[in-house]
């Protein structure tokens, strides 16, 4: 009996959360498409989501490129040459690894930062102060972050793609002694615009997931340093899960599997 009650309550809680989150997302997205636009805050968010994440994302991508080249070489028992390695690297990076790795890195970095920042504003009554002044926090706080997430993630992923492929090239040429010319030829042959675009579309959705989770958990943060810390943790975890699920869905959609 106790068990059933607990189960029922948990299910109800989960649905309440989902409902709350949907309303939040709706308000946030509405905030993006209505006036006023807070330009300064938008610029700040674009810098923090995009520009400041470049080192982390670049580093992740270059190492992903390194290992991918090594593994695809050794995976084929040393039988593969420039052709396969370059093809595997390009396809894997542009379709999957570029967007997903960049997404997860930015989720860890930016969702947490957003949740902590908005959470501490919630806890210190700054959001109440905004509302009292007649400023809509969805327009002032949420919309700039959503727009920055959706616009900057594809750019980051584009950079990650380029750096990752270069990582593969670097390992191929220096460690596996491939000929640079052939590698590049193969690489150009296997780069499909469709793959790159699919990756960028993924990135835009990942950006939305990252920003929404960061803002939502910040907004609903409870009092105290612990509340804000928890908000940051939940934001990262749920943004990452969101990215993995979205990735699966968009992959099925684009590659028709």
């Amino acid at each position: 009996m106790k068990f059933i009650r607990l189960l029922g309550r948990t299910v109800l809680d989960v649905f309440t959360r989902i409902g709350e989150f949907s309303i939040f997302a709706f308000k946030g997205i509405t905030g993006c498409v209505t006036l006023p636009v807070y330009g300064k805050s938008l610029l700040q968010q674009c810098l923090s989501v995009g520009f400041y994440a470049l080192p982390v994302v670049g580093l992740t991508a270059v190492f992903a490129g390194f290992v991918l080249a090594l593994q695809s070489y050794s995976g084929f028992a040393g039988l593969s040459g420039e052709n396969t390695v370059s093809a595997v690297v390009v396809v894997a990076i542009t379709r999957e690894l570029g967007p997903v790795l960049a997404g997860l890195m930015v989720a860890g970095r930016t969702s947490a930062a957003m949740a902590a920042e908005i959470g501490s504003m919630r806890v210190s009554e700054q959001i109440d102060a905004l509302e009292t002044l007649g400023v809509d926090p969805f327009k002032f706080l949420v919309a700039p972050r959503l727009i920055a997430g959706v616009c900057m993630m594809p750019l980051l992923v584009l950079v990650a793609d380029i750096i990752g492929v270069f990582g593969g090239f670097f390992v191929g040429v220096t460690r596996l002694s491939f000929s640079p010319g052939v590698y590049i030829d193969q690489f150009v042959k296997h780069t499909a615009t469709f793959d790159v675009v699919a990756g960028l579309v993924k990135a835009a959705f990942f950006g939305l997931s990252i920003a929404l989770c960061g803002c939502y958990y910040g907004f609903t943060s409870v009092k105290g340093a612990r509340g804000v810390g928890e908000a940051a943790t939940y934001a990262v975890v749920s943004a990452s899960i969101g990215i993995l699920i979205l990735n699966y869905l968009i992959t099925t959609l684009f590659f028709g599997l």
Partner: peptide, 19 residues
Amino acid sequence: RNAYRHHFGMLFQGGALFD
């Protein structure tokens, strides 16, 4: 709502300055 809130000036318990 906005016209209603324009009546008020509030000093919050912790100040609530935008940091």
